[in-house]
C-alpha cells in the first residue's frame, strides 16, 4: 500500500526548519540565512527535476536521456571546481574534475545497463537516468575532496617534496605520500557510508523505495547494487583525477609547478 504525501503534508515537514530558525535567532548561531537558502534551493531544484524526469521518462528518447545526463555532468564539473581552494588554471580547472567524474560514472552506468539490468531498449530512460544521477553526485564529492587534498598537500609540503626530489628520485616517487593522502581524503565519505549503511543509517534511496511501497528485500538489492556502483565510480574517477593532478602539479623535468594553480 502506498501513501502519496500531498503537498501540504510535505510542507508540514518543513516546520522543523522553522523551529531551527527560531532557535538560531534566539541563540545567535547565524545559520538562518544559509539554511533558508538551501531549503528553498532544494525545493525548487527537486520540483524542477520532477518535471524534467516526467518528460524524460515518458519520451523514451535516447537524445533527451543523453541531454539530461550531459547537463548533470556539466553542473557537477563546475561544483568540483568551485569546491577547490586553489583550482588548476585554464581548462584543467574545470576539465580534470568533469572528465574523470564522467569517466567513472559512465563506466559503471554502462556496466549496470548492459550486464546487470539490461532494460529494453537500453536507453529506456527509467533506468539510465536515475542510475547516472546517483554516481556523479558521489563521484563529484570524492574527486573534489581528493583534488583539494592533493593541491593543499603539495602547497603545504613543497619544501619537503623538493628536498626529496633533490635526492634524485622521480616525481612519482616524491608525490606518493601526497597521492596517498588525496586518495584517502576522497574515499573516506564513501567508505564511511558503506560502513554505516544499514546499522546507523538507512539509505535515503532504499527508505524512499520502501515508503513508496516496494518489497524491502528488493529495495536492499537495489541499494547494494547502487552502493557498489557509486563506490566503483568514485574510486575510478578519483584515481584518474589524482594521477592527472600529479601530472599537472609537476613537469617532465620533475619540478613542482604550483604556478599552474589559480590564486
Amino acid at each position: 500500500m502506498t501513501i502519496d504525501p500531498g503537498n501540504g503534508a510535505v510542507m508540514l515537514a518543513a516546520i522543523f526548519l522553522v523551529v531551527n530558525a527560531g532557535l538560531s535567532l534566539a541563540l545567535q548561531l547565524g545559520f538562518v540565512r544559509r539554511m533558508a537558502v538551501a531549503a528553498v534551493r532544494m525545493t525548487v531544484q527537486l520540483a524542477l527535476v520532477g518535471l524534467v524526469l516526467e518528460v524524460v521518462l515518458n519520451s523514451a528518447s535516447a537524445w533527451l536521456t543523453f541531454g539530461v545526463m550531459s547537463f548533470m555532468v556539466a553542473v557537477a564539473g563546475y561544483e568540483i571546481m568551485a569546491r577547490q581552494e586553489r583550482p588548476f588554471g585554464g581548462f584543467w580547472g574545470y576539465g580534470l574534475g568533469a572528465t574523470t567524474m564522467l569517466m567513472g560514472s559512465a563506466i559503471v552506468t554502462v556496466f549496470a545497463l548492459t550486464i546487470q539490468l539490461a532494460p529494453e531498449p537500453w536507453y529506456s530512460p527509467r533506468h539510465p537516468t536515475p542510475l547516472f544521477g546517483l554516481t556523479p553526485g558521489n563521484a563529484m564529492t570524492g574527486i573534489a575532496l581528493g583534488l583539494n587534498a592533493l593541491t593543499g598537500e603539495v602547497t603545504a609540503r613543497r619544501r619537503g617534496i623538493e628536498a626529496h626530489l633533490l635526492t634524485g628520485i622521480s616525481r612519482w616517487q616524491a608525490m606518493k605520500p601526497a597521492m596517498r593522502r588525496a586518495a584517502t581524503a576522497g574515499l573516506v565519505p564513501i567508505i564511511n557510508a558503506m560502513t554505516a549503511t544499514g546499522i546507523i543509517a538507512l539509505p535515503g534511496m532504499m527508505t524512499g523505495q520502501i515508503l513508496a511501497g516496494a518489497d524491502p528485500s528488493q529495495a536492499v538489492r537495489y541499494q547494494l547494487m547502487v552502493m557498489f556502483l557509486i563506490a566503483g565510480a568514485t574510486g575510478l574517477g578519483l584515481i584518474v583525477a589524482v594521477i592527472g593532478g600529479v601530472i599537472r602539479l609537476t613537469d617532465n623535468r620533475h619540478r613542482i609547478r604550483l604556478d599552474r594553480l589559480r590564486g
Partner: peptide
Amino acid sequence: PEWRRRITYVPAEPGWW
C-alpha cells in the same frame, strides 16, 4: 633525477619529507 644525483643542492632552509 639523474642530473640531481650528480649535483647536490642543500637549501638554506632544509626540507623534510
